[in-house]
Computed example of a mutant assay.
Amino acid sequence: MLVNLGDITAERSDHANTTAWVADVLRSRIAAGKLPPGTKLSEQQLAASMQVSRNTLREAFAMLSIESVVTRYPNRGVFVASPDAGSVREIYSVRRMLEPAAVQWGPELDLPRLDAVIADARAARSRGLVAEMAAANQDFHQSLVAMSGSVQLQQMMGRVLAEMRLVFHSMRSEPDFHTRYVEENASLVVLLRAGRRAEAAEALRGYLDAAEAELLGHLAP
C-alpha cells in the first residue's frame, strides 16, 4: 500500500534542519495512526509532496530506520515497520524507565491537561471509537512524560509512541485492549491529584507490565 500524502505540504514550515523536519512529519503521521504497518513510503511521491530532495528524504528514512519506525528492504523500498515481540520488549523497557520516573519526580504536573485527555478517552469509549481511544491513550502517556519538563525526554517519548502506534495496529481485532486502560489512566490521575506520586509511579509500572504481557501474548501465535 502506498502512502496517502494528504496535506503534508500544508505542514511545511521554515525549519533549520530539513531532514529532521521530514522525519518529524513522517513520525507524527505514524504516531497518529495515519501510516499503518506495511505502508510503502514512495521516495518520488514524498519528495514531490514535501518539496525536498530525494537525498534529504533518504537521510530522514535513515533516521527513522534507526528508531525502528521504518524498514528498508533491498530492491523493494522503504516501508512502515511491523513490530515483532522483540520490538515490544524494547519499547516497554524504555517506557518503564521513562514514564514512572516522570510521574514520581517530574516538576511540571499538569492535572487539567490529564483531565482533558481522560475526558476525551471516555467520550471515545462511549461512542465505541477505538482509534480515538488509542489516540487519547497516546496523548495521556505523552502528557505524563511532559511532567519531566525535559524537551529531550518528550522527543524520546514521541519516538516510542510512534512505535507503539504500530504495535497497536496488531490489536485492531481486540478493541477491549484500549477500553480497559481508560479507567487505569483515570486512576493514575486520582493518585496524582492526591499527591501520592510514588504510588502512582508503582501503579504505572504494574500497568505497563500488564500491557506488555497482553501484547506479547497476542503476538505469540
Rank of each mutant, 00 (worst) to 15 (best):
Q155T: 04
G195L: 07
A220C: 04
H218W: 12
D176Y: 05
Q154F: 00
A62K: 13
E202S: 08
A32T: 04
A124W: 13
V130A: 08
R159W: 07
Q51N: 03
I8A: 04
M1S: 07
F140H: 10
S13C: 04
R172S: 14
M156F: 07
D209A: 01
D14H: 12
T71F: 10
A48E: 12
S173I: 10
V80N: 01
L114F: 06
F177V: 03
V167M: 06
A101S: 14
L215M: 13
S53F: 01
W21R: 03
A200V: 04
S150V: 07
E59L: 14
G158S: 07
L166I: 04
A210N: 07
A198L: 13
Y207N: 08
M147P: 02
L192W: 14
A124E: 11
L188C: 03
A116Y: 00
M157W: 00
R76V: 07
E108L: 10
S28D: 11
G195V: 06
V70P: 02
S187Y: 09
Q142N: 12
A119W: 02
V80Y: 01
N185C: 12
A194S: 05
G158W: 09
G38E: 02
E59M: 13
L114H: 05
H218K: 13
L2T: 08
P112W: 06
P37F: 09
I8Q: 02
H141F: 15
Q138V: 11
L5G: 00
R89Q: 14
R113I: 09
S187Q: 13
F140Q: 09
A81T: 02
V189I: 08
A201T: 00
R122S: 03
A10Y: 04
T18V: 15
V103C: 00
G106M: 02
Q155N: 10
Y181H: 05
V130C: 04
G6M: 04
L46Q: 04
P107Q: 09
A198V: 14
G158M: 05
A123V: 11
E90F: 15
E174I: 10
H178W: 11
N185A: 11
T39M: 01
A31E: 10
D84L: 05
I30Q: 06
V25Y: 06
I30L: 04
A32L: 07
H169S: 13
G77N: 06
N185R: 13
S13V: 08
T39W: 00
I91E: 08
V25D: 01
Q104G: 10
R58Q: 15
M50S: 01
Q45M: 05
M171F: 15
Y181R: 14
A194V: 06
S53Q: 01
A210I: 10
A146Y: 13
P100S: 00
A210L: 08
W105L: 11
M157E: 08
T71N: 11
N137H: 15
F177R: 01
A131E: 06
M156K: 08
A203K: 11
K34Y: 00
I30A: 05
M97P: 02
E99H: 06
V69Q: 15
R95H: 08
S49V: 09
V151T: 12
T39Y: 00
M164F: 02
